[in-house]
Design a protein around this nucleic acid. Sequence first.
DNA 1: GCAATAAATGCAAGCGTTTTTATATATTTT
DNA 2: AAAATATATAAAAACGCTTGCATTTATTGC
Lengths: 333, 333
Amino acid sequence: MEKQTITIYDVAREASVSMATVSRVVNGNPNVRPDTREKVLKVIEKLDYRPNAVARGLASHRTTTVGVLIPDITNIFYASLARGINDVATMYKYNIILASADEGKHKVNTVLESILAKQVDGLIYMGQNIDDSIRKELDRSKTPVVLAGTVDPSGKIGSVNIDYVAAVKEATARLISTGNQHIAFVTGPLSDPINGQYRLKGYQTALADAKIAYDESLVFETEYSYRAGEAVWDAVKHAGATAAVITDDELAVGFLNGGIDTGAKIPEDFEIITSNNTILTEIVRPKLTSIAQPLYDIGAVAMRLLTKMMNKEEIEQNTVMLPHSIITRNSTK
Amino acid sequence: MEKQTITIYDVAREASVSMATVSRVVNGNPNVRPDTREKVLKVIEKLDYRPNAVARGLASHRTTTVGVLIPDITNIFYASLARGINDVATMYKYNIILASADEGKHKVNTVLESILAKQVDGLIYMGQNIDDSIRKELDRSKTPVVLAGTVDPSGKIGSVNIDYVAAVKEATARLISTGNQHIAFVTGPLSDPINGQYRLKGYQTALADAKIAYDESLVFETEYSYRAGEAVWDAVKHAGATAAVITDDELAVGFLNGGIDTGAKIPEDFEIITSNNTILTEIVRPKLTSIAQPLYDIGAVAMRLLTKMMNKEEIEQNTVMLPHSIITRNSTK
DNA sequence: GCAATAAATGCAAGCGTTTTTATATATTTT
DNA sequence: AAAATATATAAAAACGCTTGCATTTATTGC
């Protein structure tokens, strides 16, 4: 009664050729006489045959599937990267296994393990700092990995980013140039090297260049969320800051509104530069001046890089830095 | 030289049991003597054996993978649903193959085909209207499908939604109650039954109840995006509307800013109610009054429903309607 | 202590492909 | 036209697991 699924074997029989030949046709192997190809294609059409990707994966050791690890799919920053990843993946005929590894909730290791068990051909990794246990897991599977919007200070793993040091340095310098002497640095977890090493360094360097003493009490570490931004406004204000560099747009938007809602005038009383130039920066009033990262491109380039690795092509540069800029809007003077 | 991958066979040999027994241990089959189980587990640990999910999938006809079709991953509405889906999927040990089927760009059919080829155990479908070719594709594969935030007017396919008719009716009535006689309905594609049938009907019903004539020139069909919202403001204003019900938050936010930026006073001159109650409604000033849909829950419930279908459990109700409400903020009087 | 029954384990046939190797057929070369 | 070479096709062995069935081992009843 059950509608029998049609296999390559059925096609072979019906077309009076071997399975091997059908396989060749399906895979576009040129070693098939045109008329045989025709014949086989006709049968495939007639039987409405669809190759079983799982069987293919087992036999060929290629699943045409890549894993994508994302910290939070509702964060526009990561979602934008994901869009770039997705488009390029689609272009190269890969499917994406998406796994979200919310800090804590689903432990990265478990999630990673489940993805790797699925025999993905490659992995795009976003977010979370890469600790030893993760690195070990990555090593044991010989799966190619590319980090998108995430750094590996050891430089072993390929990655696509912007120059965070330079970007934050420029942003900070810009705030200094309009007379600010007390500039806050409002950031996500410093355990993430992007924040703790690169961005912080850019911030410090700009201060040093301007002969302003680095004051640790102006560094605010919190989480990437709107609420966290709202919540931190008071503290920043009380610390005596007159401007802030903020490392995430949701955070910055919360921070901005935290200020606005308590009567602060932005940018007159307080200047803000944020970091990701997502649509959020244009949605709020005043619009936010921002470091512009080519989010979509970071994802796209990361995925492209991964395709090369999966093809075992020669990689000229496994750490790529895309250009950034600063988009001036109305949260700065 | 290549580090040999360890298979179930290696474990079996090393533990001096059969592959079947190892398989039983790995799959938690109770028919294994505790000491044998111990022995096998020890070897698994020692060899660091990891089952190959692809081989498992081929042998068992279950991939523990579900497909998720999403129109646009950067749209907070869908991303929120996806988060609910993801959490429940993780809870039930399923991986997600995410495919984004941007209107047009990647045709739904192609994407669907590639997902189904991967032998997913089930499918969550969001967004796009389900036309005949899609329905056919869905039917041919016997894969269980649940729609999340998407309706199937035919009622054949399981789905999780809110009562769009009632929600929009309430929203419209609320605007009428504050004296508005010319209320615009700003929506995404009317080809989507949610808009074209349900929401529109709610809008019309509210008008009818208040004895206000339905005026087609107050219905504005556009796309779900910030820019589209900005762009449509003028037309709506010129049509003489004094309030609007808008079916998407990004759209609404663009619309709001389109107004604000041209000097309109909201809500004094113009009232707005939006539809999804995402964080965007709280980010803008004034904050937007909104229909509240339990986005995360829609996703979560949809996925839960799907797990039941995949287990062939009895489904009491394959179309579930979650409760909605209206959250009053500052874009209405 | 033995038959009857239940529980644990092993055997081996799939699952639906790809791919290597061998064979048959076609094409060139001389 | 035979030998040599190139091209198409076939045969069958993997790929790494699950699972139905057969077999062995343990448990129970009397």
